[in-house]
Simulated scan of single mutants.
Amino acid sequence: MKKFLPVAVVLLTLMSFTVIEGIGEYKISGTIDSSFNGKYMYLKESAHIGNMTTIDSALITKGKFTFKGISETPKECFLVIEGKEQEGSVILYTEEGNITVNVNKDTLFNSIVTGTFNNDVMHKFNKLSNEIGKLEKTFIDKNMGEFNKAEVESDTATINRVIEEHQNMIKENNRKYIAFIEENTNALVTIKAFVRLFSDQDKKSSDIKPLFDKLSAQVKETNLGKKMAEHLTKMAEIETAQAKVAINKIAPDFSAPTPKGKILSLKEVMGKVTIIDFWASWCGPCRKENPKVVAMYNELHDKGLNIVSVSLDQDKTKWKEAIKADELTWYQVSNLKGWGEPIAKEYGINGIPATFILDASGKIVAKNLRGEELKAKVKELLAQ
């Protein structure tokens, strides 16, 4: 036993040294079009979005470049070509192993990075994203002309059909992203797939949170992972608020300043039919919709239609200018807190324009109707 202990200690020491020495050592072997010979390729990292720091550089020679370094934990980095900084970058993960980069000189995003776990999974993710991107483009090319024409003609049936078809396509595409997430819970790039899931308007935090919980701690600790956790928390808060303003619920009363500084409450302005309209001076779709709402209000106000608009503006001058320019003669209120508007939070608003249609009792009978659909609903309620 006495003879064995010193030998064991030496073996353990050697084993420890061997493991530690190789931890995080990476080699990046890149190829690029020879027209870039003589330029530098920069390896950069980003602690914050839009703030990249150069950690290494390599001269491009005979269409090749090489980096060597140590990254104790996998880290997202970027390859940027000298003089081409505005044209984007090649994303890769610095991690232990031999990383191969084949730079696409025309579209840097389509460069191929392989050789280590996170880079191989990223390559799969990029292929999936490209595949889905082509499906999106095909759909838009096929339907956008018809959709734009329908908007001009206020053809809500066509608008709704195209939107529904698009959402159905998004749901099908999201099933592919969900499968990818479940197969790659330890890969850093997987967190990026979550961003795509939010394009499905029907997705709830309760749908996404169980997927997020499956991710490894390392993925959750990335900057995007932390932002995703925060977003899911906010999402849950919005959904809780939205449940309180569902169809057939009584609209919560609220009070806020008018442009002249007077405090106005919802209960003061209730009509036979009342529309609560969330908008802002900077919201293009809101401003585009305003002329139709003005025409409807002018026609139906004397019959019992009232409108109260809640603005998500922060600049009082711009708010007042937009009211005047768009000839909005109905009730206007705002706390001028942007997306922090307390009324918007209470009503679970996560996008504008947003509308709630109330009957004479203050019950919410419809939401987010536009154009002729909105006018038809208002007329139906006024006739009751």
Rank of each mutant, 00 (worst) to 15 (best):
I349R: 01
K316H: 09
L305I: 09
K316V: 11
K318V: 00
E321V: 00
N290S: 14
E299R: 13
I275Q: 11
K262G: 01
K262A: 13
I275F: 03
I349F: 07
E327N: 15
G338P: 10
N335I: 00
V273A: 06
L264D: 06
P342C: 11
T317A: 15
A354E: 01
K303S: 14
K260M: 11
W330V: 03
H301Y: 04
Q314I: 02
E268S: 14
T317H: 10
K288C: 00
L305S: 04
A280R: 03
K318H: 06
W339P: 11
P285W: 12
C286N: 04
N306K: 13
D315W: 04
G261K: 06
A354G: 03
M270S: 07
V310P: 00
K316R: 14
L358T: 09
L358F: 06
W282M: 05
K262L: 07
E341N: 15
S265N: 12
E268A: 14
G271E: 03
P353H: 08
W282F: 14
M296A: 08
I323N: 07
I276E: 00
G261Y: 08
S334D: 01
I352R: 10
K272A: 05
A280L: 05
E341K: 10
D315Q: 14
V293R: 05
N350D: 14
K260F: 02
I275A: 01
K272W: 05
V294L: 06
V269D: 04
A325D: 15
K345H: 14
Y347E: 04
S311Q: 05
E327L: 12
W282K: 06
G348D: 00
R287F: 02
W279Y: 12
V294E: 04
K260S: 14
I276Q: 08
L266S: 12
L358S: 11
K320A: 13
N306R: 03
K260L: 01
G271I: 09
I275G: 02
E268I: 05
